[in-house]
């Protein structure tokens, strides 16, 4: 029951309401894929909407993604030019500890990242020209709380197999610009 009682979730919009910052007319295939990891690095969910290129098999891909996030987190905490005490490079960081990144962009995709206080990591990969998706990720986290955490049949830490969550997620992702 480690995911219950997250204060951050309670402060945000209590139940899925109108998604923030979304378009209704220009619904496109903007999102490529979504990963959800828990704090132990277990991939709870991998969803793919548009991915022509697969370089690795699914498990290796998820491992590589988690590894990249882990290293980027310690990298940003160490680089952070505004803090005096930066700690050591490579030491695992607690959620919310040190300076974190929220997105990076390459010429072919943009990756947006969010970490909840309980260590749930949401990673959304979209078209490189997409704007700031921090609110969208927070909304997706709310969907996760509503449809996964509050599902009595869901065992925390196991892969997500909640129909309602997937349906709502797909619906929301279609509206992203």
């Amino acid at each position: 029951m480690q995911f219950f009682g997250g204060s951050a979730a309670a402060e945000m919009t209590p139940s899925p309401a109108a998604p923030p910052g979304t378009a209704t007319g220009l619904a496109g295939n903007n999102a490529n894929m979504l990963y959800i990891f828990n704090r132990n690095g277990v991939c709870l969910l991998y969803r793919e909407w548009h991915r022509p290129l697969h370089t690795l098999d699914a498990q290796q891909d998820q491992k590589l993604m988690f590894g990249l996030l882990f290293s980027l987190r310690s990298f940003t905490a160490k680089v952070d030019p505004t803090s005096v005490d930066k700690g050591n490079l490579g030491v695992p960081l607690l959620p919310g500890q040190g300076c974190s990144f929220y997105s990076f962009r390459t010429n072919t995709y943009k990756l947006s990242f969010m970490e909840s206080p309980s260590g749930i990591k949401l990673i959304l990969v979209t078209h490189p020209k997409t704007g700031d998706l921090r609110d969208a990720l927070r909304y997706m986290y709310n969907l996760y709380v509503e449809y996964v955490v509050k599902n009595p049949l869901y065992v925390p830490g196991s892969p997500i197999k909640c129909e309602l969550f997937n349906v709502n997620l797909d619906q929301y992702v279609k509206t992203l610009i």
């Binding site: 940003t76 997105s103 072919t108 990969v125």
Partner: peptide, 26 residues
């Protein structure tokens, strides 16, 4: 190395690595 890994994770071909990283403070 992270620059190299980001190319492997690209959903489409022709990725040349991270151009911009946005963090809370920089």
């Amino acid at each position: 190395s992270m620059h190299a890994i980001s190319q492997q994770l690209s959903p489409t071909i022709g990725c040349f690595g991270i151009e911009l990283l946005q963090a809370d403070n920089f």
